[in-house]
């Protein structure tokens, strides 16, 4: 009987030391993580200088209507009459006729400013992030149209499905206090 008691005690001692070891381990992990932690959250964003407008943003977001949208940086825009982001390359006339527009959903709005300049705005409710305008603008324009994750829509998944499918590594995690990577005039 005495031997049995000793057995039980030995097992309990082992268990207690394991328990203590786990506590110490968790504490150590917590200490390590506090060194590797950041106060704010991180969010997903597209580096516009790496983006190749492949169209995965349209199809790979977990949301039915992608959280990525096209944005327009007006400081970079040439306000062109013929806008390679707005017009079909084979457009018969430079107007807002649907047959002349590149955007499949008509999400770019063309507004007359002064001869011969036009302002181009994105209607985000219509934009599907297909990147057709981005390609056109990058190839023949100033590249003022580009894709960005819109944080009012983004669920901020731990692994972004679009990032996993991004062919050019343009998706990066950014700190939540600087959530956008907009193109700048000087390094356009």
């Amino acid at each position: 009987m005495a031997e049995k008691n000793e057995n039980v005690n030995r097992r309990q001692l082992l268990k207690k030391s394991c328990f203590g070891g786990c506590l110490v381990g968790l504490g150590g992990l917590a200490g390590f993580l506090s060194g590797r932690s950041r106060a704010g959250d991180t969010l997903w964003q597209i580096d516009p200088y790496k983006c190749i407008a492949c169209g995965n943003c349209e199809t790979h977001c977990v949301l039915e209507n992608s959280a990525v949208k096209c944005v327009q940086v007006y400081e970079l825009c040439g306000y062109c009459d013929y806008c390679p982001g707005f017009h079909e390359p084979t457009a018969l006339a430079l107007d807002t006729g649907a047959e002349n527009e590149l955007c499949p959903t008509g999400a770019i709005k063309r507004k007359f400013v002064s001869e011969p300049y036009f302002q181009y705005d994105i209607d985000e409710a219509l934009c599907i992030a297909c990147g057709k305008c981005v390609k056109g603008c990058a190839a023949f324009g100033n590249g003022s149209l580009f894709l960005q994750v819109r944080h009012d829509r983004c669920l901020n998944c731990n692994e972004c499905s679009i990032a996993a499918a991004c062919p050019s590594g343009a998706f990066t995690r950014v700190p939540s206090d600087k959530p956008y990577l907009l193109k700048k005039v000087d390094n356009a």
Binding site: V71, E75, S114, K135, A138, N142
Partner: peptide, 30 residues
């Protein structure tokens, strides 16, 4: 697949009058 960075092919016009250039919206995250 031309990389997105393109030079400024069409310099932005200098508008006269009362045209106000809109700013790019950046909706806040949670």
């Amino acid at each position: 697949c031309v990389s997105a960075s393109a030079e400024m092919r069409f310099p932005p016009p200098e508008f006269e009058g009362d045209y106000v250039m809109p700013t790019t919206t950046t909706p806040h995250p949670h």
